[in-house]
Simulated scan of single mutants.
Amino acid sequence: MEPPLRLFEEFYRREGIERVDGLESRSLREFGLRLAARYRSEEIAGSTANAHFAYVRAFLSFCVRDGLIDTNPADNEIAEEPLLEDTPTRETVLVA
């Protein structure tokens, strides 16, 4: 989980956010949009983009449980909207 969380940390620091309690759903939406852009430019697979977002959402859920933030800003429709549809990357061919 370290590489996606480091990527997320770099993102939110570039956005001028210094602490997790400064994150909002719109910040997470922007992070999702950037992951989707990396997918479109073929830097990462769609499954990787979704996994990165899932790791960040899990980390923020931990922050909620630990009392660092009140709610998970990655766990709502605003933040999740840019996530990629989970579809197979190739057609399955059945051999008879």
Results as ranks from 00 to 15, higher is better:
residue 11 F to L: 02
residue 56 V to K: 14
residue 69 I to H: 08
residue 46 G to Y: 05
residue 54 A to G: 09
residue 71 T to I: 07
residue 14 R to A: 14
residue 20 V to N: 07
residue 20 V to Y: 12
residue 73 P to S: 15
residue 57 R to N: 08
residue 37 A to Y: 00
residue 12 Y to W: 13
residue 16 G to E: 04
residue 80 E to C: 09
residue 12 Y to T: 06
residue 3 P to I: 01
residue 45 A to C: 04
residue 24 E to G: 01
residue 67 G to F: 07
residue 7 L to E: 09
residue 94 L to R: 13
residue 62 F to W: 11
residue 2 E to N: 11
residue 12 Y to M: 09
residue 93 V to Y: 03
residue 46 G to C: 05
residue 73 P to E: 08
residue 50 N to Y: 04
residue 15 E to D: 06
residue 24 E to L: 07
residue 18 E to P: 00
residue 77 E to D: 11
residue 75 D to I: 02
residue 66 D to T: 12
residue 14 R to V: 07
residue 78 I to M: 10
residue 47 S to Q: 14
residue 79 A to Y: 06
residue 87 T to N: 11
residue 17 I to F: 00
residue 83 L to R: 15
residue 91 E to N: 08
residue 60 L to A: 14
residue 22 G to E: 09
residue 1 M to H: 00
residue 35 L to R: 08
residue 23 L to N: 11
residue 71 T to F: 09
residue 39 Y to V: 11
residue 7 L to T: 12
residue 90 R to P: 03
residue 93 V to T: 13
residue 41 S to Y: 03
residue 58 A to Y: 06
residue 70 D to P: 01
residue 61 S to T: 14
residue 13 R to M: 01
residue 9 E to V: 08
residue 84 L to P: 02
residue 29 R to F: 04
residue 6 R to L: 10
residue 55 Y to I: 10
residue 12 Y to F: 15
residue 26 R to H: 10
residue 76 N to Y: 04
residue 45 A to S: 15
residue 37 A to V: 00
residue 38 R to T: 02
residue 27 S to E: 11
residue 94 L to K: 07
residue 61 S to Y: 01
residue 8 F to Y: 11
residue 96 A to M: 02
residue 81 E to I: 03
residue 45 A to H: 12
residue 60 L to D: 09
residue 12 Y to H: 11
residue 78 I to D: 07
residue 43 E to P: 00
residue 11 F to M: 05
residue 8 F to M: 09
residue 43 E to L: 07
residue 60 L to T: 11
residue 41 S to A: 12
residue 40 R to H: 13
residue 43 E to Q: 08
residue 54 A to E: 10
residue 76 N to F: 03
residue 63 C to M: 13
residue 74 A to M: 10
